[in-house]
Amino acid sequence: METPSQRRATRSGAQASSTPLSPTRITRLQEKEDLQELNDRLAVYIDRVRSLETENAGLRLRITESEEVVSREVSGIKAAYEAELGDARKTLDSVAKERARLQLELSKVREEFKELKARNTKKEGDLIAAQARLKDLEALLNSKEAALSTALSEKRTLEGELHDLRGQVAKLEAALGEAKKQLQDEMLRRVDAENRLQTMKEELDFQKNIYSEELRETKRRHETRLVEIDNGKQREFESRLADALQELRAQHEDQVEQYKKELEKTYSAKLDNARQSAERNSNLVGAAHEELQQSRIRIDSLSAQLSQLQKQLAAKEAKLRDLEDSLARERDTSRRLLAEKEREMAEMRARMQQQLDEYQELLDIKLALDMEIHAYRKLLEGEEERLRLSPSPTSQRSRGRASSHSSQTQGGGSVTKKRKLESTESRSSFSQHARTSGRVAVEEVDEEGKFVRLRNKSNEDQSMGNWQIKRQNGDDPLLTYRFPPKFTLKAGQVVTIWAAGAGATHSPPTDL
């Protein structure tokens, strides 16, 4: 069977082979063929449309019947899901209200924590001031004790010197008594010597008188005998007598002179000795008097100093007792304040721990409710997609609110971060928990396990030699990294520990 286009092609070929045509004729024939082709295509399209309309009418009838069946089946399910969705919305509203209440309680707890922290800071300042005052008082007490020990040692030294001076005074008084006794003995010996000298002088005078009498008696006897002796021998006898008398007189005078000289010499020697002894004793007595006077003056001065030191010692002891009493009071006050502060800190920690436990429990309940609501929403969306139902505006708002919801909680030295990733086909969620104590904190952990970043959050360098970082993902083997023995993380510095297959460059001390 030939198509209209094939017939047109045969006809035009025959005409062209029979007679030659002009260009205008050819153009018109071409346009006519195009119109015929378009008409044929339109006829085919109309036939196809008619057949499709016939099929569409049958399909519409089948769809109508199916919609009636589906509407009867879905009406009950939709009512049940609407009821469950209403319950879920009520639960979500109650959870939102509970969350708002918990946020209010958390803000209240934070305000109480700030207030307690301020009070604690003030108490710590008072405690530091009390400890500083206690240290000052202890230093003052130590200085006073040192001064007291010095004063006591000086007192003992002065008492020793006073005892020595008293012994010296006793010795000097004994020496003075001995000197006085020697002086009295010398004076007695001097008086005795003077008496003996006077006696010797009297004896000498008496001997002179006796010698004169004997001489006169001898002259008288000789004169008497001379009268009786011969005149011839008188001159010879007289001359001999005169010579004998002269010789006797000379001898007697020599003896008297020698005895006189010896007596005067002895007397002068004894007198000089007595005078020297008297002068020496008088000098000793003067020196003893002077030394005794000086000793008395020094004793008086030392007694005055001793009394002054005793007064100072009594004042120091009184002040020391006052300082000890004040120190005891300060210690009791400090202990009482410290006990009160520790009790308040313990109560505050217990209260904060209780509130944190309650908040953690409520947060766990909220997370469980969020997971249940998310599961209900997934089931509802799956059924709506299976039944090709359009979601209600309320469910769209709930989905938008659930997809944009995120929370971040800080308290008790722990930080909890939650992130949620969404897509049109599926939804997944993960959470990161970080707890830090000390100078070094974990700043970031790569989700794909490529690196771990640490930061020194203090103002001092931290030695991290032979420290270890351990990481384990589920049931995978435990991964451990040990820092070099001499590694030190500077204040405020960040160090990144890269995985072996991350392709990073080893560049200490920032990249390991």
Rank of each mutant, 00 (worst) to 15 (best):
K201L: 04
V227R: 14
A179D: 11
L263W: 04
L204Y: 14
N209Y: 07
E213C: 10
S268Y: 10
K270G: 02
F237H: 06
Q234W: 05
E223D: 10
F206A: 01
E202W: 01
Q255A: 07
T266M: 07
R189Y: 08
H252I: 11
D243L: 10
L271I: 10
H222V: 13
L226P: 08
I229K: 09
Q184H: 14
G232S: 06
E238Q: 04
E213H: 06
R221T: 03
R221K: 12
R196Q: 06
V256T: 06
D185N: 10
D243M: 02
L215I: 15
E228Y: 09
E236T: 10
S212D: 13
D254K: 09
N273T: 05
E238P: 00
G232N: 08
T218V: 09
R190Q: 07
S212P: 07
A242D: 07
E217T: 04
E186P: 00
K201Y: 05
K180L: 00
S239R: 06
Q198H: 01
E217F: 09
Y259P: 04
H222F: 00
K261W: 01
L245Y: 05
Q246F: 09
L226W: 02
L183K: 12
S212L: 12
D192H: 14
E214A: 14
Q246Y: 10
Q198M: 07
E262W: 00
E214M: 05
L271T: 01
T218R: 10
K261P: 02
E264R: 06
I229C: 04
Q184M: 09
E217W: 05
E262V: 03
Y267Q: 05
Q207D: 03
T224V: 01
R221E: 06
F206K: 02
D254E: 15
A269I: 09
L226R: 08
D272H: 11
L245W: 00
R190E: 03
L215C: 03
L188Y: 01
N273E: 14
A250M: 14
E264S: 06
D254S: 07
E262C: 14
L183R: 14
R235Y: 14
V191W: 04
D205L: 05
A244Y: 00
S268G: 12
E236R: 01
V191N: 06
L263T: 02
A193P: 01
V227G: 15
A269G: 15
T218I: 14
K260E: 05
S239E: 00
R189D: 15
R221A: 11
E213L: 07
L271C: 05
K260W: 03
S212E: 14
E262A: 01
Q255L: 09
A242L: 01
D185I: 11
K181T: 09
R190C: 14
E264P: 04
D272Q: 02
R189I: 15
D185F: 00
M200T: 03
D205S: 14
I210V: 13
L183I: 12
S268Q: 13
A250K: 13
K208R: 05
M187K: 15
K181E: 12
Q234Y: 10
Q251I: 13
L226M: 12
E238T: 04
D185K: 12
L188T: 02
A179K: 12
A269S: 09
L263E: 03
D272S: 13
R216C: 05
D185V: 15
Q182M: 03
D205Q: 08
E194T: 00
R189W: 09
Q258G: 09
T224W: 09
R225P: 10
D185G: 10
E194V: 08
Q255F: 08
K181L: 13
L248M: 08
D272T: 15
E217C: 00
Q246E: 00
E238R: 11
R189A: 06
R216V: 15
Y267E: 00
I229Y: 11
F206Y: 01
L271A: 04
L215M: 01
R220Y: 14
L248I: 04
L226K: 11
S212N: 04
K261C: 15
Q182K: 13
L226N: 12
L215Q: 11
H252S: 11
E264Y: 04
E214N: 15
L183N: 13
N231T: 10
E202V: 03
H222Q: 11
L215R: 14
K208Y: 02
H222E: 15
Y267K: 04
M200K: 05
R220P: 11
E213T: 08
Q207H: 05
L204W: 10
D185E: 09
K261I: 07
Q234H: 10
R189V: 08
K265I: 06
R240L: 15
E253Q: 02
D272I: 15
K265S: 12
E178S: 00
R235A: 06
D254W: 13
H222Y: 03
E178I: 15
Q255P: 01
K265W: 13
E217D: 13
E202A: 00
Q246A: 10
E253V: 14
T218M: 00
D192P: 01
V227F: 13
S268C: 14
Q207L: 07
K208P: 00
M187H: 05
E253T: 02
E202N: 04
E238I: 10
S239A: 00
L271N: 05
F237Q: 04
T218H: 04
F237M: 15
E213M: 00
Q255I: 06
K265H: 06
N273Q: 12
D254I: 14
E228W: 01
E194I: 15
Q246D: 10
E194G: 03
S212Q: 07
Y267H: 02
E262G: 15
T199A: 01
M200F: 12
G232A: 05
D205P: 02
F237E: 05
Y211M: 13
R190F: 10
E213I: 07
S212H: 13
I229M: 12
Q258A: 15
Q184F: 10
K181W: 08
Q182W: 00
K270D: 00
M187A: 04
L183M: 15
D254T: 13
A250P: 04
D230P: 06
K270F: 08
L215Y: 01
Q251K: 08
L241T: 04
E194R: 15
T266R: 06
E228P: 06
E228G: 05
E202Y: 08
R225C: 02
K270V: 07
K270L: 00
R225N: 00
Q184D: 09
S212I: 14
E253L: 05
V256M: 02
Q258S: 15
V191I: 09
V227M: 15
L197Y: 12
L248H: 02
D254N: 13
E178K: 14
R240V: 12
E262I: 00
Y267C: 00
R225Q: 09
F237P: 05
K233T: 14
Q251N: 11
N209D: 08
R216D: 00
D243V: 15
R235H: 15
E178G: 14
R235P: 03
D272K: 08
K181G: 15
I210F: 06
E238V: 12
R225F: 01
A244N: 05
D185S: 13
S239P: 00
R220G: 12
G232D: 03
V227H: 00
E228I: 01
T266W: 08
R216E: 04
E238A: 02
M200Y: 09
R240Q: 09
G232L: 04
R216H: 09
Q251E: 10
K201P: 00
V191G: 03
Q207K: 12
E257Y: 10
A242S: 15
K260M: 07
N209L: 11
A242T: 14
A193K: 11
E247M: 02
E223P: 12
N273I: 04
R190A: 09
L226E: 15
Q234P: 00
